[in-house]
Amino acid sequence: MIIMESRLKNMVLGIYELGNKTADDMHGHGSMYQVSIPVYGNPHMQFNDQHKNLMKYDVTVVSPGDQHRNFADKEKIRLMLVSVDQAFFNTVFSEITGEKKLIEFMPWGHANGEGIIKQVDQFFKRTLLSPVEEVELEDFEHSIAEKILTIQKGSHSSKWDRDHISIQQPIIKLVLEFIHDHYDKPLTLQILSTATGISKTHLNRLFRQELGKSISDYINHIRTKKAEQLMKGKQFTLTEIAFESGFGSISTFERAFQKYYGMTPSQYKKIVTF
């Protein structure tokens, strides 16, 4: 039984639960890879003609064309499911390595999916509170795909492990210059990729490695600094300040500002204009 689901552009996130002494039917997922990670209980999985007992955080990947089913033998089980479009995985791999390859994951290995669970959990909580901007969604999807390609072995591993760790500092400088020049306009990974000639996946990975934060976090930080400067004057309303600083909505502005300054924009404006 699906108890929570979120459909994104290139993947579907879900929480799946089976009651004690129950099982689902043998099934596949079309052109999607499905990543399955137990978060409660210890499920038993049948993968094609193989069987395995799984522990908490064990990662299983069902590739397109494969069949599987889950059993709850002794207690209720709950699984985190991340279904990723086959073309998206291939694109992420190709952009990083420069090689086109049909990826075939090992169904199971020794990968620990706790990091993926935490990131998806944060995303669920984030989307419940307010709308998510496109750049954040793109950043999230690329980050999850890269995590899976890194921790789960398969036909891609030797090439991926060798190529995905390179760092190119001059590229990041170019990206930062573009962000600072265009922070007041809509910015997405696609826009930055087109402007700098860097693939979205490569750009996302390099940025995190160099600055230790996502592109969307960095953009919001720059925008809140601009907003903070504008609030020192009395000629702008908070709505005008939000859009002048590049935020697409008042709620996004308020959330970002409170994250960096520890108070709401209205509270800050009262202090600096008193």
Rank of each mutant, 00 (worst) to 15 (best):
A242D: 07
E240T: 03
F140I: 11
Y218V: 05
N90F: 04
P107I: 10
H164I: 02
H180E: 15
E95W: 01
G212L: 09
K213Q: 13
R126P: 10
R208K: 15
Y261D: 02
L81E: 03
M231H: 08
K118R: 14
D73K: 14
L54C: 04
I191G: 01
S143W: 00
G30S: 14
M263Q: 13
L137S: 02
W160P: 00
K259P: 01
E17W: 02
H202D: 13
V12S: 11
D58L: 12
K52Y: 11
L13K: 01
E114H: 06
S245I: 00
K125Q: 11
T60Q: 07
I3R: 01
F178L: 00
F140P: 00
K225D: 11
F247G: 03
E75R: 00
P64K: 09
F207K: 08
E134S: 09
I3S: 05
I171N: 08
F243Y: 15
P186T: 13
K101R: 14
H156A: 06
K200M: 15
K56V: 08
G113H: 12
W108V: 12
T91A: 11
G19Q: 10
L187N: 05
I179F: 07
A227Y: 05
E95L: 06
I3N: 04
P265H: 04
I165Q: 06
K9E: 15
A227C: 03
Y261E: 10
N220E: 12
L102A: 15
D121F: 07
N90P: 00
T97K: 09
V35D: 08
T60E: 02
Q267V: 01
V35Q: 09
I250W: 00
F123M: 10
S166I: 03
I37V: 15
T224H: 04
Y183V: 09
D49K: 13
I77Y: 08
P64L: 08
